[in-house]
Design a protein around this nucleic acid. Structure first.
Lengths: 215, 215
DNA sequence: AGAATTATTAAACATTTGTTTAAAAAGAGT
DNA sequence: ACTCTTTTTAAACAAATGTTTAATAATTCT
């Protein structure tokens, strides 16, 4: 007879539930700012205020820990997109809302676009992203809605791929280039923040006008 | 008495002029693909087919070598911009030409935007870029031309900074996101190349229409 | 309280890192 | 041929790296 209960006669799993979370938070912070190659596990341990062994105790290796952080970041990265696409709005409204939400989100997490693109750009192995990242987007039916809108002449005839690039360019890059922009124009953080706020309006106006010319 | 001549009674400086260049080429290749933190000096030496000591013989350190590569890359990065701005064209023509030239250039050097932004993003010290990078652009008088065009109502009223962000977004990001785009849409390199070619036309049309509405 | 389990620490590990040293090889002037 | 200089190599260095080990501390169950 199996004693199923025995497998769950566990002692308390965690004395301090937050230790694992604290490490994740620290790792996220350090990885985000310095990148995977740019930091050591000791950097992260120092950020936690603890030991290196603890990282390998909870997560098996630096790489595993990074993957975890990356997947979380990727999830956040796509989150607002999915939310907007799932809404019950016209494509034009969705586009407008998407730009708003993305700017709003990246105002709070400006390091995210660079972190994601950098990680993908330098991903050692050539293994593709797990499909579960992008599937939820397709599941929203946004692509079908797009084809329909184009066939009805409500929207300019541009391929889905070019639209994607267009949107991401104008929504991600402004945050990826923050330092460059600051140095190029010799402005401080606050001024740039103002510019980015204004930029949202320009981008929205420009893209809406371009993608939906007859309205 | 000083013998000035003695200081220049040099033996042949270089037996093989290309050694230094070979190292630079290898370093550029490796730094571009793996980043400063992502590679070791031994990686570069292996790419050269030689020894590590040779790198420090010609360039004093990994950091110095990187700075050299970075400055060269930065120079290339701004090159086409300066060429277009210096030409004798209207602002609208310059904008159009700039987008063309930038796409043309980055088609050949797609890794450059990511390399530059990544390097600036993770620059350890907070010291600003040397001013000699950006001064040549101001020297072209492009900013004055822009203010003039706006005052004459030929151009939409957007700050120079927002215009810069707008242009760079649409011209840099498509190349920075190549891997992401490929994985997102599940397409191969050749297909993406086609998309980028098409994208140039979209971007040009959209930005020209937006910045110069009355024409 | 005592045994069992989990969490945390300190020390050690083998590699890899950037750099230096010292010697050898190659080239050029005399 | 010989010396002086430049270029290239191999070996060694200390420091930093990711990971493991073994011991200690803390917690939980009986």
């Amino acid at each position: 007879m199996f004693n199923f209960a025995a497998r769950f006669t566990n002692y308390k799993m965690k004395r301090d539930l937050s230790t694992e979370e604290k490490i994740k938070a620290a790792a996220k912070k350090v990885f985000m700012t310095k990148g995977f190659d740019g930091c050591s596990v000791r950097d992260i341990a120092k950020e936690v205020g603890s030991n290196v062994s603890l990282l390998n105790y909870y997560f098996r290796s630096k790489e595993k820990l990074f993957e975890l952080i990356f997947e979380g970041a990727m999830s956040d990265f796509l989150q607002s997109m999915i939310a907007v696409f799932s809404s019950n709005l016209s494509l034009k409204e969705k586009t407008s809302l998407l730009i708003e939400k993305e700017f709003e989100f990246f105002m709070e997490h400006p390091e995210l676009p660079m972190f994601i693109l950098q990680a993908i750009h330098q991903s050692k192995g050539d293994q593709p992203m797990p499909s579960h990242f992008f599937e939820p987007i397709a599941k929203t039916g946004i692509f079908e809605q797009l084809v329909l809108a184009q066939s009805k002449g409500e929207m300019r005839q541009i391929s889905i791929r070019n639209i994607t690039i267009l949107l991401m360019s104008n929504v991600h890059y402004p945050f990826m280039s923050k330092k460059l922009t600051q140095q190029f124009h010799g402005i401080d953080e606050a001024t740039l923040q103002q510019d980015l706020l204004a930029h949202q309006a320009f981008v929205k106006e420009m893209i809406i006008e371009y993608l939906f010319p007859n309205s």
